[in-house]
Simulated assay, not measured.
Amino acid sequence: MKEQKLQIFLDIISHYFNQFGSEEMVVDTPYLLEGKLPKVLDYTGVIGISGAQKGVVYFSATRKLLSSILSSMGERDTSEAMYIDLAGEVANTIAGNARTEFGSEFHISVPFVFKGAPQSIVLPDDERSFIIPITWLSQIGEIVVCLED
């Protein structure tokens, strides 16, 4: 994946958090995941990509980060289902906005969402995966992007 494509995802996630207006989201230096499984945080939403490009995009966050998002939205429901839905919503928003940049042949799946660490997350073996660490209101999350060039 080329750097300009990675910048699209950086812009999308920055825009997502800027809509809440309270504190600026901090993006740490993206890095390449090499030869190991990506870590996951408390909740993770995974979007499969098919069509002209293939790969995966996922958003993983701590419960506290998701709680901060819910609070900023004015949402009072802090049920387990709400955290799971929000992780999927953020992942879907990221991938959906990327679709507007990459075009109509950038097909996204419905989110697959889980709590905790699964047995594994399958990332394409033949492509590089980039991790974008984020911090917002002192809470952490990550966006993982793995798309064929």
Rank of each mutant, 00 (worst) to 15 (best):
L33S: 13
G74K: 07
I69R: 02
H15A: 13
F130D: 08
K115E: 03
V122Y: 04
F130E: 11
I13K: 05
W136L: 03
W136P: 06
G21P: 15
D125C: 05
F9Y: 13
G51H: 04
S22K: 15
Q19F: 15
C146T: 04
S109G: 10
V26K: 15
K39L: 12
V40N: 07
F130V: 14
W136Y: 13
E34H: 10
F102K: 06
S67D: 14
E89N: 04
F130G: 08
T29P: 05
Y16G: 05
G51N: 09
G88T: 00
L86K: 02
K39D: 13
K54H: 14
Q139I: 04
L6E: 11
V40M: 05
L37W: 14
F20V: 12
D11P: 03
M82H: 04
D149L: 03
A87W: 01
Q119R: 13
D11G: 09
P133R: 12
L66A: 06
D85W: 01
V57N: 03
V56K: 14
D85E: 08
D149P: 05
V46E: 01
L137N: 09
M73R: 05
K5I: 12
L33Q: 11
L65D: 05
G96K: 04
I143E: 00
I84N: 00
V57K: 01
V144K: 04
L10P: 10
Q4R: 07
Y58D: 00
A117F: 11
N18D: 09
D28L: 15
I8S: 02
M1W: 02
S71D: 14
S68P: 02
K115I: 03
L137C: 10
I47V: 12
I140M: 10
K115N: 06
S104Y: 15
V145D: 04
G88L: 01
T78M: 13
V56S: 09
Y58G: 04
Q139T: 05
E34P: 12
L37V: 09
A52Y: 00
P124D: 07
S71L: 10
S138N: 12
E23M: 10
Y31H: 11
C146E: 03
D149I: 01
Q4C: 03
L37Q: 15
G48T: 12
R76L: 10
T44C: 08
P133K: 13
M1D: 14
N18C: 11
L70K: 09
S79N: 07
G74H: 07
Y58T: 03
E3L: 13
I143H: 01
K5Q: 11
V145N: 00
V145Q: 02
V110A: 09
E34R: 13
V57H: 01
I94Q: 02
V46M: 11
A95Y: 00
E148V: 06
I47Y: 02
